[in-house]
Design a protein around this nucleic acid. Sequence first.
DNA 1: CTTGCTTTTGATATCGATAACATTTATACA
DNA 2: TGTATAAATGTTATCGATATCAAAAGCAAG
Lengths: 339, 339
Amino acid sequence: MRNKTKLPTMADVANLAGVSSMTVSRALKPDTSVSKSTREKIQKAADELGYVLDTRASEFSSGKSGFVAITIPSINNGNFADTVKAFSDGLAEQDLQVLLGYTNYHVDREEQLVEQLLKKRPEAIVVTGGMHTDRCRLLLENSGIPVIETWDVPEKPIDHVVGFSNLEASELMFEHFIAQGHKRIGFIGGDNSRDSRGRDRYLGFCNTMEKHGLSSERVSFQELAPFSMEPGASGIRSIMKEWPDTEAVMCVSDLIAYGAITECQRMGINVPDDVKIGGFGAYELGQFLNPSITTIDVGAAQIGKFAAEKIIELLSDDGNTKSAKIVKTEPTLIKRQSA
Amino acid sequence: MRNKTKLPTMADVANLAGVSSMTVSRALKPDTSVSKSTREKIQKAADELGYVLDTRASEFSSGKSGFVAITIPSINNGNFADTVKAFSDGLAEQDLQVLLGYTNYHVDREEQLVEQLLKKRPEAIVVTGGMHTDRCRLLLENSGIPVIETWDVPEKPIDHVVGFSNLEASELMFEHFIAQGHKRIGFIGGDNSRDSRGRDRYLGFCNTMEKHGLSSERVSFQELAPFSMEPGASGIRSIMKEWPDTEAVMCVSDLIAYGAITECQRMGINVPDDVKIGGFGAYELGQFLNPSITTIDVGAAQIGKFAAEKIIELLSDDGNTKSAKIVKTEPTLIKRQSA
DNA sequence: CTTGCTTTTGATATCGATAACATTTATACA
DNA sequence: TGTATAAATGTTATCGATATCAAAAGCAAG
């Protein structure tokens, strides 16, 4: 099946067109000095042979890979997808491609992934979060390219940061609950040892409760598969069983909130009259559920946009880079029906 | 910002370890004959220098790129994500990476994307659907690598196919409506000129209606942004306004169905008592909505799995490839509450 | 039609790893 | 201990494009 006949090379095109391969190389990219007639001749020869540039050779020769790497925890997450999309759009103008990898919320997997990505010699790398293995940190520090950590504001940044405080973001929701007079408040989250963003949202819960002299015992930690609503259903069942008088619950993501709200409906519990439920992330599906989900918008797309701008600036390299090392975005509460 | 000091190369590692670079090359990959002591010495030197293999050079030299390209219409679609995930998992064993591109449902964009991907010399390419521009077809045919079309069964396949009939799949839903005694049946879809899969589902509607002597006029075509629920809401509003006695509606995807069902709830129309609503794709969110969404499961993950298996077989190249050129998967109806 | 400049084209070395072949070193067994 | 065989390591050429420098062609003005 694999064809034995080799694909045409630039030399083949050069031969057919009766020029040197260097001229072909020039003719095939814009803004290089080649006479109009020669360029047309070459284009014709290339079309005839069905020639497609071999970027591996091209990149290898020129020393530029033409792409930027980014790691995100999960593919099935509209929030990260928004970041990636904005990031990708922002870099497209500069003819920079995006190479994407998924860590599945594992730092070990992240280390492996980062190594894999660095092997391809990206021109910059963006990672989600500030929690890394020691070796991963080392690899990033020694990579010789700009490194941006996002979706978080690490205490000890590796290089640049575009993020927000998950802790402060989640406090917005709890302050909202408390401002409505609620006291018996809960939280549904995941495995905090793996996901520092989730952990910080939980810490936001503890902090706010403590600040107002309230108990932070009403908690359920679920095993979170990527893009899962089921954990939300389990979580709310367990909370309502153990503490039936719970007035408000924040979920670590809108997907969890979705599972929790729909489970309440099945249990005959009215949201928001009986219990208020808040989410995190401003996913589109939350807007259309009945009741629509009150949530925290972290500006996922903005993060991607800022990261792209930062990279373009860092790569332009006029020597005097003056942008701040840390860019913070401002999460906001989106008040809807569920809380 | 861009560091001037060059990253270490294999030769640097070789120097430090006191061996030839060929030995370094061998030591850094498994299953090659290098003595244990030498390998350790080299590993130590590599770690010391923070050396990471340059795969561009490696791939260029060996002639293998080590990855497979796949194009899908949209990133924000759980179905395609399932296919990609299964595909990716299936290829991981063979140390094949997946390079992913999004066509955004545009054949022109697809052409551009395919060219871009081929420039990187993948070892095989998977495209979604069988609708391509002429030039795109040509590029694929001349690529010299295995080509697999998925999510559809084109009349004139380029090479291999792993898909299903969208037409037959959607008929399942309409036959289900009709078996329940419904006659006034509608369809909500998107721009058929761009999405052949959506068009075939619409044709399934027309065929089934005609076969049973029913009218196929109750149709609403919406502008579909990727991952959008709003069009479902608009679609059902327009259908219920023009034909208030409609008994059942199938939506071209579960996301549309989601928008339609939640809009019915806002309009005070009971689903399924007043009107039945079916979806397509078996998205997770449909399972948790109240009412849960009756849908068609097309085996998205299975498609990815089969495609991966096929590619592994085609690349193994023992000369006598015997697998069928066309593999069909069997869509099934998942009966839930909404219809 | 010659001088001096710009534009276009060509020759050669090179990027970093690996394939293919050659050679040396270790190991087994008579 | 010597020969046969296997394992480990080294040498050289090479993948396909591009950077760099050099040469040729085109062109304007005197």
